[in-house]
């Protein structure tokens, strides 16, 4: 048996947690190895030292504070799990609320697609090099800075929301 193995198993040996066969092999090693014997002595003394070190008493009212928090949680079971957990949030919603949320989501997506299509199907970026020298929008293909396509939903929206200049 080598020192490395004995050193690793020393703690279990000192606590009487090793099987009898291994124990006798460790003892045979300890009988011949001064360094491992010293390590065992140090381990035992270290244990005594830790046992002598005091521990401050449990803070006054710790249990009461824990129980007060526990009662608060018990009063609001949704919070007892995690408020931010999606599963908990989903469970907290009733079926009609879940259905309403799904409908809103679908409507929002449909509206987004509709508006996007209006913009997408408009005239493409101005091509040709003739204008590029004088028109930076054409030169850099920044067509999203051009006017909205005629007749698109985006145009209607902008005309409703824009303020007419005097």
């Amino acid at each position: 048996m080598r020192c490395k193995h004995v050193t690793r198993r020393l703690d279990a040996y000192a606590a009487g947690e090793v099987p009898a066969e291994e124990r006798s092999r460790i003892e045979a090693h300890l009988a011949t190895c001064e360094s491992c014997r010293q390590a065992l002595t140090n381990l035992e003394r270290m244990g005594d030292l830790f046992n002598r070190a005091s521990l401050p008493p449990v803070p006054d009212g710790l249990a009461e504070r824990v129980m007060a928090l526990a009662r608060t949680r018990a009063a609001s079971p949704a919070r007892a799990t995690s408020l931010w957990s999606f599963a908990a949030w989903r469970q907290a919603l009733s079926i009609p609320m879940r259905a309403a949320a799904a409908v809103m989501l679908v409507l929002g997506l449909a509206l987004g697609i509709l508006m996007g299509r209006g913009v997408w199907s408009g005239p493409g970026p101005t091509t040709g090099t003739a204008n590029s020298a004088s028109d930076p929008l054409a030169a850099y293909n920044v067509d999203y800075l051009t006017d909205t396509p005629s007749g698109s939903l985006a145009e209607s929206y902008l005309s409703l929301t824009s303020i007419e200049k005097p």
Binding site: T7, R8, R9, L10, D11, A12, A39, N42, L43, R45, M46, L49
Partner: peptide, 22 residues
């Protein structure tokens, strides 16, 4: 095994620091 290694390394580090008290 990992715990035994952790404890062995910890004892090795603590030994010189606590030698006076031990």
């Amino acid at each position: 095994k990992a715990v035994e290694r952790l404890l062995a390394r910890a004892r090795e580090s603590l030994q010189p620091k606590l030698a006076r008290l031990i």
